[in-house]
Design a protein around this nucleic acid. Structure first.
Lengths: 115, 115
DNA sequence: ATTTAATACCTTGCAACGCCAAGTAGTATA
DNA sequence: TATACTACTTGGCGTTGCAAGGTATTAAAT
């Protein structure tokens, strides 16, 4: 890997920025989940996210009132914090759905006008 | 506009992050352009970007060797800095093209698995 | 009883980036 | 000379992803 690729990896990181919150809400709209489970689902979609990114993000979403959580015992190991969407979270998800579609449209507008 | 919407505006800002460099390269792959012209094209695609964002970004891309520029006199006002893609810039654009498509696929994977 | 391993949650410090606001400078018109 | 318009530049701020390290619970192994 040369220097140029390293720089572009950074761009890819930046590209994901903002879409992460959206992805979390999407995943939780399907079913309640705890952090390692969410990490697994993101990995399944080839979106690599690490713990140190996810936990503060979940805390932010909770503080914004978009998520709540409940403790639930694990069959093995410490109890798990299962997050779920609040009503506000569902509303926010709809807004972000639209934002995502808009951004895809905008980029496509620019892409298609290329010669 | 309530507080919740303000928070989500921030998310939209973050969502654009990283895609901006990609958009600049896309625009410049079509024709050389100077800053206010680029701002206009972004605005046409409903992507609002301000000067204070664009100029440092152009400087970064130039320092990375993806862009070069030439001064050109203006019919009115000060001379203009016309940016154009370098060979490296064209290569980077291809990489970012693929990155963009990958990200769209990844998000769609998560979107479609929703019940 | 103590150690080890596995699981889960959280925090700190750093660097990158978009944005706001203000500043600098060239050109033309009044 | 003053004003207006255009174009480029910069400093500080807030947000965020990440690497690295820490804490806590549980069960199995020693």
């Amino acid at each position: 890997m040369n220097i140029q690729n390293i720089e572009l990896d950074n761009v890819k990181t930046q590209m994901r920025r903002g879409t992460l919150e959206y992805c979390i809400l999407l995943i939780l709209s399907r079913e309640d989940a705890y952090a390692p489970q969410i990490l697994g689902e993101l990995k399944n979609a080839d979106m690599i996210v690490v713990e140190g990114t996810l936990y503060p993000l979940l805390a932010r979403l909770k503080n914004q009132g978009l998520l709540s959580y409940r403790w639930q015992e694990s069959p093995q190991g410490p109890p798990r914090k299962y997050y779920c969407l609040t009503d506000l979270g569902h509303e926010a998800l709809q807004v972000l759905d639209r934002s995502w579609e808009e951004m895809v449209e905008q980029i496509n507008t620019i892409r298609k006008s290329r010669n």
